[in-house]
């Protein structure tokens, strides 16, 4: 019980601290959750799991935002295929998003079931 209360408070705190994530930024965070990927691999992965085709302008606009917020970071490598990985702040932001989405879907499901 205490664990649930503390975790809920932490998620709430993270939610208030966060910056507003766009749909594309959220998809990129999800894509990087299982390991570092370069731009093309992210675009392919997002297309696979979300059926969403990210154009190059949209993809790099979201990557730049996530990088400037410290949610993802580039790794050393070929400048044309630079991999990105999730930072600890990015992981917290993603967990906070999942928490909010879970509450949203469960509230929606409860109301539809009435």
């Amino acid at each position: 019980m205490i664990v649930i209360v503390v975790r809920s408070a932490l998620y709430r705190a993270a939610y208030y601290c966060r910056v507003a994530l766009s749909e594309e930024a959220r998809l990129i965070l999800v894509s990087l959750a299982d390991g570092a990927k370069h731009g093309y691999a992210i675009a392919q992965d997002v297309e696979r799991f979300a059926s969403r085709r990210l154009g190059p302008g949209t993809l790099y606009g979201a990557i730049a935002r996530l990088e400037s917020w410290g949610y993802i970071e580039p790794l050393a490598g070929d400048a044309r295929r630079r991999p990105y990985r999730l930072t600890s702040a990015g992981l917290r932001a993603l967990k906070s998003e999942i928490h909010v989405l879970r509450r949203l879907t469960s509230a929606a499901a409860r109301r539809l079931a009435r």
Binding site: Y40, P56, A79, R80, R81
Partner: peptide, 10 residues
């Protein structure tokens, strides 16, 4: 910053 990556993606 991003030119090389965008060109590779396209």
């Amino acid at each position: 910053r991003y030119r090389a990556e965008i060109e590779a993606l396209i």
